[in-house]
Amino acid sequence: MFKGYKNAIYFTNWGTSGNSSYLPQELPVSELTHILYAFADIDANGTVKSSDAFADVGKRYARDDPFNRTRGHHAYGAVKQLYLHKKRNRNLKTLLSVGGFDYSPKFVPVAADAGRRRTFADSAVKMMADYGFDGIDLDWEYPADAEQAQHFVLLLKACREALDRFSFQHLLPYRFLLTVASPAGPVNSHKLDLPGMDPYVDIWNLMAYDYTGSWDNTTGHQSNLYRSPRHPSATKLSTDDAVRYYEGLGIRSSKILIGVPTYGRSFESTSGLGQAYAGVGSEGGGVLLYKTLPRPGASEMWDDEAKASWSYNNATRELVSYDTPRSTLYKARYVRRKKLGGAFFWEATGDRGGAASLVNTMSKTLGWLDESPNHLWYPMSQYDNIRWGMPGA
């Protein structure tokens, strides 16, 4: 039964530190249905582990006990804050995202071995329960061939079985989620056994961005909804193409979330869209946060065929491809028209607040957000405050 659209966001543990830190308390939780906490690491034997224990459970925020006067073994950091969000917003689900670009090579040997797959699945479920989360998200970028694709199917099967076994053993009438960050481009998506994966996957987070970048020889839209006949070299891929491919293989549309980037991709020394360029700049490898765009002196442009935004500076000859509230509005309408499951954002740090927020635009336009309940009871957690349900908070 349809219970509303999903509006999800990736929230990173490394984003909680540094001069431009984004804290878990800043998440716009009233506009979200799912938070995917990224990323957990993977040991050689398959054990899923924290990539930053201090950010996860050690960092003290305001109103946490700074002097360890509270007895017991407690989770602090982002984990505590995410649990508090769940407790105050009972339709908000949190997931442990494992892998990501940096840790993806570690999937290869683990997924290839039955024992390590079981270790991976059991340890991921344990960390999920320790943290008080509602599921697991796998982000393997990307299986390289048919053999690795089959290993991915077996890894998902092991995770689904571990999640169901966990619910059965603890008498929990709750289906913990298993989601996948999946590729939109044919180079990677065509290597996956999507029909084989689908029985184990609750949500497909379609990474509908990075369609172009420093690896291409022309500028282009990095997250366009459609191809543009007027700018074919700038729209070599499209979100609509990717959605149709998944649906054509039998993936139910209501399980697909389309990704929206909260960053832009820069191209320097170019005369415009679909043209040659020379470099992407030293700032972030050409990746710029949406909240800093458009840059001073740049004009924001609109491609009505592709339903995509970009900016161009005539003086510096810099072009930046990025999403805006206008392009996000069209994506939300596309979700509704195609009866997709919703959308997700990579990642929380880049968005603006207020009317210019991409998350807010998506939430308002989708209208009916997922009303399925989260789970709060984790008597098996190693952390006392999670196990006790964060009393008094």
Rank of each mutant, 00 (worst) to 15 (best):
residue 116 R to W: 05
residue 334 Y to N: 03
residue 242 A to L: 06
residue 14 W to E: 10
residue 120 F to V: 03
residue 116 R to D: 05
residue 309 S to P: 02
residue 226 Y to V: 02
residue 373 P to K: 03
residue 344 F to W: 07
residue 223 S to K: 02
residue 265 R to M: 03
residue 253 S to D: 10
residue 370 D to F: 03
residue 165 R to V: 06
residue 133 F to I: 04
residue 33 T to A: 08
residue 308 A to T: 05
residue 142 Y to W: 14
residue 39 F to Y: 15
residue 124 A to V: 04
residue 66 P to Y: 11
residue 291 K to W: 07
residue 317 R to W: 05
residue 10 Y to E: 09
residue 208 A to Q: 01
residue 250 G to E: 14
residue 150 Q to N: 15
residue 355 A to D: 15
residue 128 M to W: 03
residue 167 S to A: 15
residue 97 S to D: 13
residue 138 L to K: 00
residue 85 H to Q: 04
residue 67 F to V: 07
residue 1 M to F: 11
residue 11 F to W: 11
residue 302 W to T: 10
residue 39 F to N: 01
residue 231 H to K: 03
residue 9 I to W: 02
residue 235 T to N: 04
residue 297 G to W: 10
residue 37 Y to A: 00
residue 299 S to C: 06
residue 105 P to M: 13
residue 260 V to Y: 00
residue 75 A to Q: 01
residue 288 L to R: 08
residue 20 S to T: 14
residue 128 M to H: 01
residue 40 A to R: 02
residue 345 F to Q: 00
residue 254 S to A: 13
residue 80 K to F: 07
residue 363 S to M: 04
residue 276 A to P: 01
residue 163 L to N: 01
residue 175 R to M: 10
residue 199 P to F: 10
residue 190 H to R: 12
residue 208 A to S: 15
residue 313 N to T: 08
residue 336 R to W: 10
residue 132 G to D: 13
residue 177 L to V: 08
residue 149 A to Q: 08
residue 158 A to M: 04
residue 52 D to T: 03
residue 287 V to M: 08
residue 210 D to C: 03
residue 352 R to K: 15
residue 332 A to I: 04
residue 262 T to E: 12
residue 369 L to R: 02
residue 175 R to H: 15
residue 329 L to F: 13
residue 86 K to A: 01
residue 171 L to C: 10
residue 109 P to S: 15
residue 49 K to Y: 08
residue 38 A to M: 09
residue 311 S to C: 07
residue 385 N to G: 05
residue 152 F to D: 02
residue 161 E to C: 06
residue 287 V to F: 03
residue 300 E to K: 12
residue 268 E to T: 07
residue 177 L to T: 03
residue 212 T to Q: 10
residue 126 K to Q: 14
residue 264 G to I: 00
residue 251 I to V: 15
residue 45 N to F: 14
residue 254 S to F: 06
